[in-house]
Each structure stands twice: as structure tokens, then as C-alpha cells.
């Protein structure tokens, strides 16, 4: 494909035609903040944080959905861009709890990073805020809708696996929120707790329940491991604190990498010093089960015992 040369912040950048301004800037090492952009499922264009100034274009276009053109001039940090980004962060904070001190995501939160980067100390608006109960209805994922910034990454990643689509956007306007069918808690939905959504959530709206209270993000070292339970070869991360593995989290899901609960639990059993008790839903209730059952190995384990002659 033909190449296109454009100027970003005074720097000449050459990229293949059809590239987005965002990717072009990033390829040249120029930073543009994003919240809703997911390289695996691009083109959503909702958070508007990645807006840039392009002389000749009406308004400030979102760089994630604007394609480059020959000779295009892009300003990623002009006065108007900075004002807009600050205001958008300000608006998000106006509808977001300010409880960073106790938030599991503290230290690994995009909203926090950008607020720091653009110097938005606190919101300038004091009006209505979201007020949803905490969804703590299952043993794996904690959902705090009040922290949700509606970037939709969870919705899109859930829809990326055929047959899942457990969540979608519901309601409208200021009342928009991510919902399950009939807006039931996650524990009552068809969710299979693969936690792709947790892996992509940029804020603290979706977190791992088994990791809750076990440490701050900066105390954890991460180590990638590949799951060998099936041929998909999904990547997970060991979360290590003081030399001990305290939990398993999913790495960003890629195409053809479904991630699944069984795989995560298997790794939990393999690596974590004190693995959680596996829980499965039976008749609508989560109940503790044996590891063999959780991993779907009951028949095998029984047969192994039989063949090897152990009681």
C-alpha cells in the first residue's frame, strides 16, 4: 500500500495510507491519550479524549477514527486540544467516585493517569452522579458501575467471542450503562467469568474478586504465562507480591484467544500458593466444588486413581 507523509507536532511521519492519525502518532513516539480505543477492535470513537487539531477540519477530530492524508498537519497538544482533554477528564470525574485511596485499580488506572497528566485536581461540576449498587454477585468479578466511564471496551471484547455477548449498552444518554440481559447482576447472567472484560477495563469498574485486598498494583510484579489447557494458548499473568504468586489475571485478549475460567482456575491451582476455592454455578447458586470438577477432570481423575490402584 502506498505511503503517506504527514506532519505531527512539527515532525514528519510516514505511514501506510489508511493508517489512523492515532497510530501514526504512536508510531512516531508521540503520545495521545485514549480510553475507549482498543487496537484489537478499533473504530469506536466514543471517549473523545484522543482528539487532535487538524487545520482545515471542522472541530477537533478524534485521532482514533481519522485516517491520515498526504500533507496533513496535526497538532496533538495545541491549546484547544489541551482545553478539550482537560474538560473531558473533568466531566468524567464529575460522574466518578473520588475514592482512589481505596480503589483496587489505584496506580493502574487510565483516568487517574490522565487526570494527573493534565492536572485536573478535582472536578469543577457538582451535580447528579451515577448511583448504582455494587455488583458482588459472583466469586470472580466485582462490578462497580459507578466507576464505569462507558468506554465500551468490555462490551466489545465480550461480543468478540461468538456466543458470549453477555453484556451490552443499555438505556440512553446520561442513564446509559453497561447491562446484562434484563439488567440482572453478573452472577445471575450467562457470564462465564472469562474476565476478558476485566482485562480491558481502563478504570476500576471491573476488578478481580480473588485479588481484592491482596495488594496495591505497584507492589505486584507481573509474569506472563501461557495456558496449556487447550490449543488456544491464551496468555495470563502471575501477580507476584513478596515473591509469592497471589493471583492470576488475564492478559489483554487477542483474536482467537478466548480466555476462559477453566484455564484461569487451572493456572491458579498450578501457581498460586494458596489457591482460591473454585466455585461453580449449580441451580443458579455458586457452590464450592473440587478442583477436579472445576477443571472438568472428574472422570479422568477417577480413572487415574482406578488404573494406578490407589484408594
Amino acid at each position: 500500500m502506498a505511503n503517506v507523509t504527514l506532519t505531527i507536532d512539527g515532525q514528519k511521519v510516514t505511514v501506510p495510507a489508511g493508517t489512523t492519525v492515532l497510530d501514526a502518532a504512536r508510531s512516531a513516539g508521540i503520545f495521545i491519550p485514549t480510553l475507549c480505543h482498543d487496537p484489537a477492535i478499533p473504530g469506536f470513537g466514543a471517549c473523545r479524549l484522543c482528539i487532535v487539531e487538524i487545520p482545515g477540519m471542522r472541530n477537533l477530530p478524534a485521532s482514533c477514527v481519522t485516517t491520515v492524508a498526504e500533507g496533513m498537519v496535526v497538532h496533538t497538544a495545541s491549546e484547544a486540544v489541551i482545553e478539550a482533554r482537560r474538560t473531558i477528564i473533568d466531566l468524567l470525574l464529575a460522574n466518578h467516585p473520588q475514592d482512589c485511596l481505596t480503589c483496587e485499580k489505584n496506580g493502574d488506572c487510565r483516568l487517574q493517569d490522565y487526570a494527573f497528566m493534565y492536572g485536573v485536581r478535582q472536578t469543577s461540576f457538582h451535580g447528579e452522579r451515577k448511583n448504582h449498587p455494587l455488583d458482588d454477585s459472583n466469586p470472580y468479578i466485582i462490578r462497580d458501575q459507578n466507576k464505569c466511564i462507558l468506554c465500551g471496551k468490555c462490551v466489545r471484547t465480550c461480543q468478540a467471542v461468538p456466543g458470549r455477548s453477555v453484556i451490552d449498552f443499555g438505556y440512553r444518554g446520561f442513564n446509559t450503562r453497561v447491562v446484562t440481559a434484563m439488567d440482572v447482576p453478573l452472577g445471575e447472567s450467562d457470564c462465564v467469568y472469562c474476565a476478558r472484560c476485566v482485562a480491558v477495563c481502563p478504570v476500576g469498574a471491573l476488578t478481580y474478586k480473588p485479588m481484592a485486598g491482596k495488594g496495591r498494583t505497584w507492589e505486584m510484579q507481573k509474569k506472563s504465562v501461557t495456558c496449556t489447557f487447550c490449543e488456544s494458548g491464551c496468555t495470563f499473568e502471575l501477580n507476584i507480591r513478596d515473591g509469592k504468586v497471589i493471583g492470576i489475571t488475564a492478559k489483554e485478549p487477542g483474536p482467537g484467544r478466548p480466555l476462559c475460567l477453566k484455564g484461569r482456575l487451572g493456572l491458579e491451582l498450578l501457581y498460586v500458593e494458596k489457591p482460591m476455592t473454585p466455585m461453580l454455578k449449580k441451580d443458579g447458586q455458586f457452590v464450592p466444588v473440587s478442583w477436579a470438577e472445576a477443571l472438568g477432570l472428574e472422570g479422568l481423575v477417577d480413572r487415574m486413581k482406578e488404573v494406578e490402584g490407589q484408594p
Binding site: 466514543a46 451535580g127 449498552f169 438505556y171 446520561f174 446509559t176
Partner: peptide, 12 residues
């Protein structure tokens, strides 16, 4: 409710 400026900005 899709984009931040309209969803949150109109409210404020």
C-alpha cells in the same frame, strides 16, 4: 450517551 462530551457535558 455514546460520547463523553455530549453525555456528560449536556447534563452539566
Amino acid at each position: 450517551g455514546k460520547c463523553t462530551p455530549c453525555r456528560e457535558g449536556t447534563k452539566r
